[in-house]
Design a protein around this nucleic acid. Structure first.
Length: 802
DNA sequence: AGCACGCCGACT
DNA sequence: GTCGGCGTGCTC
């Protein structure tokens, strides 16, 4: 007897363990751990992952597996182990983690259908729906308002049965090819038999007399200017045949990659790469922190480390933050390693992601470049893992399982005995502290390539501008600088951390601010659509003409978003051509790439954008970077706001003067004296590190302490508060005296989508029982969560405190 | 999750 | 007395 231990696709604590199923004899040699199966679960069928295959079970009445969904395992032994570990670390359900490790498309799709079993008359009403068919989709039954209780009666009678079907969403893209189906002489005969009126058919037959190799239908149609109808007639006459071929969707098919070779390494690059090479050779699972200023040539170090790995016949994973995964970065990897590279990031369609994943799974590639989830690439012989821009927040998943790619990377490095390289110009405080302690191996690259200097940074105090009577959003210096660059035909990058037009809309008469009815937040005005939008839920209304509270017409826009800046630029510098890049202009697939290409081709002078333009961009003609306002970010209720500001300013500054032309940076702010801004402007990472560490120590924040954030939400404010209070009490009771428990506190945004949000924060050094306690708390609230619309989110080492 | 089982109020 | 309401608990 062979038994499969299966985690089923039902996401609750009650089913968060394996269920045993009998493997039918005929499949005994087929079913392996890591495969997806379809199993009967109660009255229905669900998808599940085989975690183990064994020869006995504690249960006596086992049901057999229903179906095996994969030919080869989709999760390796290693990934199964890591999946269990992540689930435990993040207090998630196993199924959630395994799902997160695979491309979306491999998730199961569920379908119900109704089947008539007997020739016996079934109820008239049902017969009409079936209209003579034996099977019908349950969906159709619902759509056509079928009588459900009547159906159940017939099910009880045994006349009708409900089938549960588990399908994979997986689809392979196919292309249709046309090929001759007869010997040439037979085609020639057919040609003569064809009526002279059927000119197009004759033309096609003639083509295949000369050309016997299959041709893609699309191409045939354009070449002979014909239609599918004509081809189909020939196919029907059995003269031609259609062949369906599976093809990979190639997201980069229109892009040419010029092959590049290794560049000679500078002195500091050599010093940095040697220990990495050594770790590769000696199969050491060492973690390196590569601290290199922007433009110091980190990417070349990555590339040559990977070359060494590939020479040894091993594989490499490279993680890049979501937004920095610009075509530029992909370009560099593709041009160095060609078709050995698979790319996985959010701009790909689900189908494209699946195809890229398949290449990895089939070992057709040995390098993966991708965002967070690419850390789960199913390689089995990894020689190096690289995480670029290590401090980026996108490496932490913001839904369950809330894992951090860096921690998974270290775990995988352990397993494969290979180095992990964390690269950044502004490492996270936690990482740099670990490097200083010797937990990570610190590699420093303090100089820019080719003796380039970091561009000088000028800080403009916007309060002075106001005193001087300048009420625009551009300081005189910035405006002047923009104008000179445009004259010199150089390019400009302008950064603003806020999309939309204005941050809030207020009535001047009564001071009423337009707020979202479902969230505790002001609405943002979007000028292009002339709407007020909530950035936290999908609420949007047409812009109001008069104040809702006092009916006055004196409504004013406050705060500045990218749309407003774009408009102001047109007004102040009519000759400027501006490209705006934010979530609103890059929502469509491929638009991100298109906008950047346009800017690269110098079709615009100014690139204006939010966060997404801060990283990875490298345009040689950019000589001025302007930061319009950093103050909003600096004053967020987040202990990392100083660090985030420092990182952002450093990253943005790095966009200027990366090549021959000298660069310049102008930062506008209302708090020029702040140490984040001061030190960023002088590129003093070390000094910033020391100063910020002191603050963190004082407030008992990371890296001195670990944090756990528990977020509770409920439609009723009192309920949310009360539950949070109880959770705080329970934690206080069960955690050690060393832990600090803060709360219950209202979240920075108390209400989102009509749900009230409260939180509890734990600061601790070592609490081995913490996860177990939290699991128990969640189980204690099982009923409230399932039937009473309560949610309890737990985030270990959170990035966002909102 | 989704469904069956089972225990209390309004009906032919 | 029965139908059906929803609270409770199980699914290998």
């Amino acid at each position: 007897m062979r038994v499969a231990k299966v985690i089923v696709d039902v996401s609750t604590s009650q089913t968060n363990h394996t269920f045993d199923y009998l493997i039918p004899e005929s499949w005994e040699n087929i079913v392996q751990k890591g495969m997806r199966v379809s199993v009967p679960f109660g009255p229905r069928k669900v998808m599940g992952f085989v975690l183990e295959v064994s020869d006995h079970s504690e249960f006596d009445k086992l049901k057999p597996l229903d179906e095996v969904m994969d030919l080869t395992p989709v999760l390796t032994e290693e990934l199964l182990q890591i999946g269990k570990w992540i689930s435990e670390q993040t207090v998630s359900f196993y199924i959630q983690t395994f799902q997160a490790m695979l491309p979306q498309i491999l998730k199961a799709k569920y379908k119900k259908e109704i089947e008539v079993l007997t020739d016996v008359e079934i109820a008239e009403e049902l017969q009409q729906l079936f209209a003579g068919r034996a099977v019908m989709d349950f969906e159709e039954f619902v759509e056509r308002n079928g009588n459900y209780s009547l159906l159940l009666k017939e099910v009880k009678n045994g006349h009708v049965q409900i089938n549960y079907i588990v399908k994979s969403k997986e689809t392979n893209k196919t292309k249709v090819f046309i090929a001759p189906n007869k010997e040439p002489y037979l085609l020639e005969e057919a040609l003569e038999d064809t009526s002279n009126r059927a000119k197009k058919q004759k033309r096609i037959l003639e083509y295949f007399l000369e050309q016997t190799t299959p041709i893609e239908q699309k191409q045939l149609i354009t070449e002979l200017s014909t239609t599918t109808a004509t081809i189909n007639q020939l196919v029907e006459r059995n003269l031609l045949k259609k062949i369906e071929k599976k093809v990979y969707r190639d997201p980069f098919q229109d892009t040419d990659f010029e092959r590049s070779k290794s560049l000679p390494l500078s002195g500091q690059q050599q010093t940095a790469i040697k220990p990495i090479w050594q770790a590769i050779e000696e199969k050491q699972d060492e973690v390196f922190l590569l601290h290199g200023v922007t433009g110091s040539g980190k990417t070349e170090v990555y590339l040559q480390a990977i070359e060494r790995v590939l020479d040894k016949g091993m594989e490499a994973i490279v993680l890049v933050p979501e937004i920095a995964l610009t075509p530029q970065m992909v370009q560099r990897f593709k041009s160095r390693f060609g078709s050995q590279v698979a790319v996985l990031h959010s701009a790909l369609s689900a189908g494209e992601k699946f195809d890229e994943w398949t290449k990895i799974h089939k070992k057709e590639v040995n390098v993966v470049v991708g965002a967070r989830s690419a850390i789960f690439a199913p390689f089995e012989n990894i020689g190096i893992i690289i995480i670029d821009e290590e401090h980026e927040t996108s490496y932490k998943q913001d839904e369950q399982p809330r894992y951090h790619a860096r921690e998974v990377a270290k775990k995988r490095g352990n397993y494969h005995h290979c180095p992990v390289v964390l690269g950044s110009a502004t490492p996270m405080l936690e990482s740099y502290a670990r490097a200083k302690k010797g937990v990570y191996h610190l590699l420093e690259m303090p100089d820019r390539m080719n003796e380039g200097e970091m561009p000088p940074v000028e800080i403009v105090d916007m309060r002075d501008e106001l005193y001087a009577g300048n009420r625009t959003m551009f300081s005189r210096n910035l405006l002047e600088a923009i104008k000179t660059r445009i004259e010199k035909k150089e390019q400009i990058v302008l950064f603003l951390n806020r999309r939309g037009y204005s941050t809030f809309v207020m009535c001047r008469e009564c001071g009423d601010v337009m707020k979202c009815p479902a969230c505790d937040i002001a609405l943002t005005y979007h000028k292009s659509s002339h709407q007020l939008k909530c950035h936290y839920c999908d609420y949007q209304i047409a812009m109001v003409k008069e104040c809702q509270a006092c009916n006055s017409k004196t409504i004013r826009y406050f705060g500045t978003g990218t749309q407003k800046v774009e408009e102001a630029l047109r007004e102040h510098i009519p000759e400027a051509k501006v490209i705006r890049m934010d979530v609103d202009t890059t929502r469509r697939k491929g638009s991100h790439k298109k906008l950047l290409e346009k800017f690269g081709n110098k079709e615009a002078n100014i690139l204006l954008g939010t966060q997404m333009i801060a990283k990875g961009l490298d345009f040689e003609n950019v000589t001025l970077v302007g930061v319009l306002a950093v103050d909003a970010m600096l004053h967020l209720p987040d202990f990392r706001s100083s660090e985030k500001t420092f990182q952002l300013l450093t990253q943005v500054s790095g966009r200027a003067g990366r090549h021959k032309l000298p660069g310049e940076v102008i930062i506008q702010t209302y708090t020029p004296e702040h140490y984040s801004i001061q030190l960023a402007s002088q590129y003093h990472y070390q000094q910033f590190f020391h100063q910020e560490m002191q603050t963190r120590r004082g407030f008992r924040y990371p890296p001195y302490y670990f944090l756990t954030l528990i977020n509770v939400s409920h439609p009723n404010q009192l309920k949310a508060q009360e539950v949070t209070k109880t959770i705080c009490k329970l934690l206080f009771k069960h955690l050690s005296d060393e832990a600090t428990i803060l709360g219950p506190t209202p979240s920075p945004i108390v209400r989102i989508n009509n749900r009230y949000r409260y939180q509890c924060m734990v600061k601790y050094k070592d609490e081995p029982n913490q996860r177990e306690i939290i699991r128990k708390i969640q189980e204690h609230y099982y009923d409230d969560i399932h039937r009473n619309d309560l949610t309890i989110q737990v985030d270990f080492e959170p990035y966002s405190l909102m």
